[in-house]
Design a protein around this nucleic acid. Structure first.
Lengths: 256, 256
DNA sequence: CAGTGGTCTAGACCACACC
DNA sequence: GTGTGGTCTAGACCACTGT
């Protein structure tokens, strides 16, 4: 039957696969990654019905909870659907971009658009009322202000303004022109945890239009974001403007 | 010590709490919900360091895996942070202040406005090239087209156009004016699984400006969305336009 | 009915952070 | 060291789906 045939794809994918128990990589993760790879390359095609988790566990020499954990990973990624009494089935493929904290730089880089960053200004300023509120610092406290112009394929795409607490700005101008801000912070030991973004639109100001190379009065996308670290402290507040004719936010979501 | 004191908040929260083993609600979920509630109401304040999971499990009469599962729920929701060798700590609440450009959006949200929906059209049409591609049907196949105007506070906010495979449109005009499309589909047994959204901006067309009550040439937010069900089949394709002066997308995300 | 995933238990050992 | 969360095992019973 059809079911039998597509089950064979799973068996095929598992045939040459063996768990490495000396590896520091968790067993459930080894399994999950292998299955994820098999699914995304099509070796296990959409619609495939998995064998039940007990059989799979035995086949791989694992306990059922460990096998379950691998399955949960796939469910969280939206690759498979599980139903009690039915089984586990591979979902039809869609666009798979594991959109995390949206980093414009990474976005462009991953789509091969060779992003560049021009540092427009990099100063220490006194926080005005808005900045003080967003960053959770006192009015007039010194904060770091960064203004950058991001381009892709030699055409400007976004004007980005970021404010950071002074304690986090342990980098120099050259670091900012080399890559994304988030990567920079991560490499400095900041544990990013969550963010609140607001995406809106309005007409470009004259200055913005000139900077982005857009006609006067054209529509721009706006995005404000506050990012938090592990401890709940504000890491950064950003106020960005994107040329709407050249950029849009793609958001991938699971309707858990 | 300070640590001791904030631990007491946890103990306090757990004092009157008992697991109900006769309930159909899973034990881990009972615990998770109780803790989530205690955190969001402030009974367990931010910064609180939890007792280790073994002690907590014993205190609640649970096994460690079950207690762990409750913790994982809280981690997934971004309410606590766990670190090996350190412990589990309640995260600072994300300050959710209205952002400058979205005061009107905020008005709607905070006043708990129940939006109204006006059905502009509801037809069966032949799929053009775009619709056929998005829905995964043949060119010229019959699909259902829905056009709605959503308002809040008696002012229009969005013009929404949706296309559905004919098989899914098992509802009537009155259903569409009563509530959301997604709720309608769910009640019809559709298992929503995932979606891909693109958010952009442009200048409003004359017709759009008139419909939304905005000045000619003003900026609008655009959102296109394809939704998928369990089996990976397309449920719906939407093409929406929002009055940018009155609406913005607020996106909350974890950096998992 | 048989088969599936969902939940739960009571142990064990390991990796890591801090003292 | 000691204490934490991270991983793993080998069972068990239950709830749901399809026949």
């Amino acid at each position: 039957m059809t079911t039998r045939q597509i089950d064979d794809a799973l068996e095929e994918s598992l045939r040459g696969f063996a768990i490495n128990r000396t590896s520091p990589v968790p067993l459930y993760f080894q399994v999950a990654q292998h299955l994820e790879d098999s699914i995304s390359t099509g070796r296990i095609p959409p619609g495939t019905l998995f064998e039940n988790e007990i059989v799979l566990a035995k086949r791989l020499g694992l306990s059922r909870p460990t096998m379950r954990r691998a399955m949960e990973y796939l469910v969280d990624k939206g690759l498979v659907v599980r139903r009690r009494g039915i089984g586990t089935r591979v979902v039809q493929p869609k666009v798979r971009r594991p959109l995390e904290l949206t980093s414009l730089y990474d976005d462009l880089a991953s789509t091969g658009q060779s992003p560049t960053t021009e540092l427009l200004s990099f100063d220490t300023v006194e926080a005005d009322a808005t900045v003080a509120e967003k960053l959770g610092v006192g009015f007039g406290d010194e904060v770091v202000r960064i203004e950058r112009l991001r381009s892709a394929q030699d055409r400007p795409i976004a004007r980005m303004i970021n404010y950071l607490p002074q304690s986090l700005a342990t980098f120099g101008s050259d670091d900012l022109e080399r890559g994304g801000l988030y990567e920079l912070l991560r490499s400095r030991g900041v544990h990013l945890h969550s963010a609140v973004q607001t995406v809106g639109a309005r007409s470009a100001s004259v200055a913005e239009a000139r900077l982005l190379g857009e006609p006067r009065g054209s529509a721009v996308l706006t995005m404000q974001r506050v990012s938090f670290d592990d401890r709940g402290d504000v890491v950064e507040w950003g106020d960005h403007v994107y040329a709407a004719s050249r950029y849009a936010f793609e958001i991938n979501l699971l309707t858990a």
